[in-house]
Simulated assay, not measured.
Amino acid sequence: MNALDLKLQEKKQNLITIYTTAGYPNLTDTPTVLKQLQKNNVDIIEVGIPYSDPLADGPTIQATSEKALANGMKLNVLFDQLKSIKEEIYTPLVLMGYYNQLIKYGVEAFLQQCQESGVSGLILPDMPFQVYLDQHQALFEKYEQRVIFLITPQTPADRIKAINDATSGFVYVVSNSATTGSTEANYNEEFLAGLKTLGLTKPYQIGFGISTKQDVEKAWKYANGAIIGSAFLRAIENSTAIEQSVDDFIQSIQ
């Protein structure tokens, strides 16, 4: 069974998802980072595909993408790295990228590589869910790739319900109207509380602006899980001992 499905079935609440940029801080660090996150019992790992125009990302993730691209990270390099540790990784891996990357690579070729690399699902913030349903759903299902769609405080209730229905993994809830990377969790609490009244059938996790243990615990009050990205990347930015830096950060939020 798909590893993401298994995780979401076995653990209903208090999920922790960590985002890391592929090829950062150094080109060959990604396998080490993934294995160390797994060792620290992270529930889901989101691997960001570096991109030159990351619309949803704040300054921290943009800077890590630029560094990773300069390091030489490319999709085929990432897939090769993931394949090299596939037998060691049981934690669900979700790739986060942009729709143009999928189209440019070739949708079926991309999804096949994901399956062969041990990837469980994809987050493509700019892929319209109706396009997914009309053009891509069958291929996602063929290669056992779950799709995670985003909702924001500006998303109307009827669209939230439609996105919930289209999502095959978990729903990614943007906590506020900003880009990623805020050092303070500025939750739109009215929006988050209102989600519980919509009868959503898929698990949902809150991201954007989560960086501390207190932020995580607050996210857990409103959702099934918390997603941390920029704070983790800042923690490993200048690391000379990557495993220890991963350990220290995860311990700080537990």
Rank of each mutant, 00 (worst) to 15 (best):
M127T: 10
A157P: 08
F149K: 05
K142R: 15
S175R: 11
L111T: 04
A109N: 13
S168G: 06
S177G: 15
Y143R: 13
I103Q: 13
Y187P: 00
I103E: 12
A185E: 06
T155D: 01
T152H: 08
D126V: 02
F149N: 01
P128I: 10
N176P: 04
N186H: 13
T167N: 08
L150I: 02
Y105Q: 01
L150M: 12
I103V: 14
S182D: 14
L150C: 06
E141H: 15
P125R: 02
T152E: 08
Y143W: 15
K161S: 02
H136M: 13
S175L: 05
I148G: 02
M127Y: 08
L124P: 00
R146Y: 05
A109R: 10
E189M: 11
E116L: 14
L124Y: 09
V107G: 09
E144Q: 14
Y132T: 02
F110G: 09
P125E: 06
V107N: 09
L122V: 04
K161R: 11
S175I: 10
G169P: 03
R159I: 02
A178L: 11
S177Q: 14
F129H: 12
L124S: 13
E190R: 11
A185N: 09
G106M: 00
P125Q: 01
Q112P: 00
T179E: 00
G106V: 00
E108D: 13
A157H: 14
Y187L: 14
I103A: 10
G169A: 11
T180H: 04
D126H: 03
L122N: 04
F191C: 07
H136G: 06
L133S: 12
L111F: 10
V119I: 14
E144M: 06
N100G: 03
Q101D: 07
S117N: 05
E141P: 13
F170D: 06
F140Q: 09
L192Y: 06
F140R: 11
F149H: 08
E184R: 13
P128T: 07
Q135R: 12
T155L: 02
G169F: 07
F149I: 07
D134K: 12
S182I: 05
I103L: 15
G181C: 09
F149Y: 11
I163R: 00
L122T: 04
A109T: 07
I148P: 03
K142Q: 14
T179F: 01
T152P: 02
Q137L: 08
N188F: 08
N188H: 12
A162G: 00
A109G: 02
S177T: 14
L122R: 05
P125A: 01
Y172N: 00
Q113H: 11
Y187W: 08
I123F: 01
G121D: 10
S182V: 03
A162Y: 01
V171I: 10
Q101L: 08
E141K: 15
N176M: 04
L124F: 10
P156A: 11
L111R: 09
L122S: 04
S175V: 10
D126C: 01
F129E: 06
V119L: 04
A138P: 08
S120Q: 08
Y143I: 13
I103N: 06
A185H: 05
